Simulated scan of single mutants.
Amino acid sequence: MSDEEDDYMSADILNGVSDQPVGIAKSRAHKRQLQIHSRFEESREVYKPKRPQSHAEREKERRDEALAKPISHESKGFALMAKMGFKPGMSLGKQREDEIRITEPISVDIKANRKGLGHEVEEVKERNDRVEAVMQKMKEQAAKHEELIDDYSKRRRIDENAKQLVKDIRSCRKVCEELDHRIGKKVPIVDWFWRSYKVVQEDSEAPKGYYKRRETEREEEYKYSNGHSAPEDPNYDVTMPIQELEAALLSINTYLRDGHFYCIWCGANYCSPEDMAEHCPGNTRGAHHGDDDHD
């Protein structure tokens, strides 16, 4: 066998081994390549250069070795304690029956940095302060999130209440107009109790050279369904303040109950105030649905 074949650390062989898959040898040549690769990896681990220790690491290693050694019997301190009856393994001082004492020296905490005394305590305090500040910020964000949820829920309740008020007002106006017509009223007791409609005016043929006035320049005219003149319709909707909607509903509902003995939520026209008081749950929507306190 040639020297080149025996030199399994040569570059040519190692380059060939790096491309070969690791596994069960398929031939004698493959087996030899696997052996060469294994030896190469072992040699890399053996001759792998170690990272040089820093000065602080060397000092710590020497200090730990010195502290691990027991007190020498030749030291003056040990000689003085021996004269007072001390023996290796004993504790110092008189021991009571219920007292447990240490027999090994207390470990020494060496200060290996250049930070001032108490700096570690200050670092711990600052770290705890940072953690507390983060926790406080998280609590504030959670409280703000809950406040936004409450505010959103409140706005939704207000919007739903406004929609219901508008619906009740429109129903009351429709019923009020119908009941007033039954008793022969020409106009409502309050202008807006009946709905008014805008009159659409058609332009008549004008002479040549006469310019027609624009629609915006005309004086708008409103009338009730029976043709009598009426003011502009207030057109109650959800954009109006809740207090205004509640006041309007209370006003027209009171007129329907007192003047016609009619309850908009019962959908019934009672015979008398006594009949209404006996059969109608109350003068609010909440009274009819069991949530009067909410209203």
Rank of each mutant, 00 (worst) to 15 (best):
H181V: 10
H181S: 10
H181F: 15
I183M: 05
G184T: 08
K185W: 05
K186T: 13
P188G: 11
P188A: 11
P188R: 07
F193Y: 10
F193K: 02
W194D: 14
W194C: 12
W194K: 07
W194E: 13
R195V: 04
K198H: 01
K198L: 00
V199I: 11
V199F: 08
V200R: 04
V200F: 03
Q201H: 14
D203G: 01
D203R: 00
E205H: 09
A206Y: 06
A206W: 03
K208C: 07
G209S: 08
Y211D: 06
K212H: 10
R213G: 03
R213D: 02
R213P: 05
R214K: 09
E215L: 07
E215P: 07
T216L: 01
T216P: 00
E217Q: 09
E217L: 06
R218Q: 00
E220K: 00
Y222F: 15
Y222A: 02
N226F: 15
G227K: 10
G227L: 10
H228F: 15
H228T: 11
S229V: 15
S229M: 14
S229T: 15
A230K: 03
P231A: 03
E232Q: 08
P234C: 08
N235V: 09
N235W: 10
N235G: 06
Y236R: 06
Y236L: 07
D237L: 02
M240V: 12
P241Q: 13
I242K: 01
Q243H: 06
L245T: 08
A247L: 10
A247E: 12
A247V: 09
A248N: 10
L249V: 08
L249H: 11
L249E: 10
L250A: 13
I252V: 07
N253Y: 14
N253Q: 14
N253G: 14
T254V: 09
T254R: 15
T254H: 14
T254C: 12
T254I: 07
Y255R: 13
Y255G: 02
R257F: 00
R257Q: 03
D258A: 04
G259A: 06
F261L: 11
F261G: 05
C263R: 02
W265Y: 14
W265H: 11
W265D: 02
C266D: 12
G267N: 11
G267C: 07
A268W: 04
Y270W: 11
Y270Q: 13
Y270A: 14
Y270C: 12
C271P: 00
C271Q: 07
C271K: 07
S272N: 09
S272K: 08
P273M: 03
